[in-house]
Structure formats: C-alpha cells, structure tokens
Design a protein around this nucleic acid. Structure first.
Lengths: 142, 142
DNA sequence: TATAAGCTTAGAGCTGACTCTAAGGTCAAC
DNA sequence: GTTGACCTTAGAGTCAGCTCTAAGCTTATA
C-alpha cells in the first residue's frame, strides 16, 4: 500500500496531478486511512501506471477514460473499440504533424533568406516576406 | 477605408478576433466614425495582413507583437533579432515534431499489433501493451 | 418609418491539463 | 511535546487564443 507521495514517486506524476486524475476518475485509491489519507493497493498502482503510459503516448484524459473502462471490463468491449480510439488519435497526430511540417518548411525558407546579421532590418527579407504574405498552407484544419 | 466586417472578409479573421487582436496591439484602426465604428486604412490593412500571415505560419501573438515592433521601426532593429525569433520558433516546431513523430510511431505499432475486430477485448494487445508500459519516450521535454 | 443587419463595450466563458492556495488535520522522529 | 513533513479539501488560477454575450447604438434598405 502506497501513500500518495509514494505513488507520485513511483509514477512520476505529482500528488496534485494524482488527485486531479482522481477527480476525473482515472486513478483510484481503494482505501483511506481513518484520517482520510489515500492508500493505493497493487491494482490501483497498475491502473495509475496504465494511465501514465497512455498519457506518455499522447492520449487525452478523455481517451484514457475510455481505455480504462474497456480495461476494467474487457468482455463487454471489442478490439475494434480500442483500435478506433487509437486510430483516431493517430489521425490527430498525423494532422498536427503535417501542420508542423509545413511550418517547419516555411520557417526554414525564411531563415535561409535572411542574413541574420547585425545589419539594420530595413531590408530584412523575413519581414518583407511576411509583408508580401509568405503563406504556406498551415493551420488549414487546426 | 474598410469597416471591421470588411477587414474580416478580407483577412479571413473574424470581427471578434480583430477586436481581440486590437486589445493586444496587433491590429489597429487608425480612424473611428463619430459613432465609434472602426475604420481601417491601407496601412492598417497591410498590418492586419502581416499579422494574419505570421499567424498562419505559426508565430504566437507574442512573437507577432515583436515582429510588428521591428516592422514599424526597422532602423532600430537588426536582422539578427528577426532571425532569433524565427529560429526560436523553428526550434519549438522541431521539438514538437519529434514528440509527435514518437507518438505516431508508438500508435502505429499499437495499431499493427491489434486485430481491431469485433472480438472481445479480453486479450487486446493494445490494452496489454499499455498495461505493460508500452513506452516510447514522448513528452519528455514538453 | 420600420426593420434588420451591423457596430460598440466590458467582461465572461471556453478548451485541456494541470497547478497552486489556504486553512487545517496527522504522523513520525527527536 | 514539539517540530516539520505530509496529508486533506474546495476552489481558484494559469496558459493561449480565441469566442461569445448582453445591452444598446447606428446605418442601410424597403
């Protein structure tokens, strides 16, 4: 049985965050001391680590909530539900990736165009490009 | 001279957003009608388009604020200041890109591992992987 | 002249994921 | 028995960038 600070040390989450996750039903403390202190048993700890892993991968708290409800009652859910959540997340990631790649591209072009020196910015090609509408299609579907 | 809704149409920003940007000193209406209506002259319009372009590229409002102050007084600023802002943004973008690539990678691996069918999730390999701590180093330096 | 569309403001609300505060109770060590 | 670290709660604050609301003027059109 771990106390909250011990679970925090074990998972790398802060005690604040653990309480916050509890509010959102992601992490549970099966027991409480008489004084109200949270105590985490092995099952709670595994659940907390599941949450941490999913969070590390990039799932939202809402996604994790769904994954958890599948995890606790696997027979009532299908693999498809799990892959749907995962695929949806992957789609999001891919979308953000292409936005960021576009930004990267534009920024690199801008940087190449400018001397970057101590010269006055009177003819700075970055400022000029922005003035001219140096648009590469970003943020299209943010 | 454009009214706010006309500037909105021209830039693709909403009137709400234009007012919001004005609050943050990004966009200006040089004139006001007697009734208080905003009127944008050519210089205001160019400034608004500069803002829109910078925003499209992915610069934060704070970045844009700095870029604008360079733009309005180029002789007091150097190209280096401009490239510093741009390089800093590129660094940010690169960092996010590598996080997202890592997520993409993990999600793809998870998806490949699971049948995704209507089977009960009893042995779902995604859930199992999350339980086992399927960590690929994401979010390390978010 | 009446109606509708458009404009004004200050300020609140939204998103997601924390992060912190205040005010107080508990516990272990010395 | 007292210090100090740790725990509790509800609720507020943070970030960025909008987005919307309410209440009331103004302007253009029919």
């Amino acid at each position: 049985m771990l106390k909250i600070s011990e679970l925090a040390a074990k998972t790398g989450l802060s005690a604040h965050t653990i309480r916050f996750y509890e509010k959102h039903d992601l992490i549970r403390a099966s027991e409480r001391s008489e004084a109200g202190y949270r105590y985490y048993n092995d099952s709670d700890i595994r659940r907390a680590e599941f949450v941490k892993t999913a969070r590390n991968i990039g799932f939202s708290l809402e996604d994790i909530s769904q994954l958890l409800s599948i995890r606790v009652d696997k027979t009532s859910h299908s693999c498809q539900e799990v892959t749907d959540i995962t695929q949806h997340k992957l789609d999001e990631v891919n979308e953000k990736l292409s936005e960021l790649e576009s930004m990267q591209n534009t920024l690199q072009i801008l940087l190449k165009s400018c001397c970057g020196g101590p010269e006055k910015a009177t003819h700075c090609s970055i400022i000029e490009a922005l003035d001219a509408g140096a648009v590469v299609k970003n943020r299209s579907a943010a």
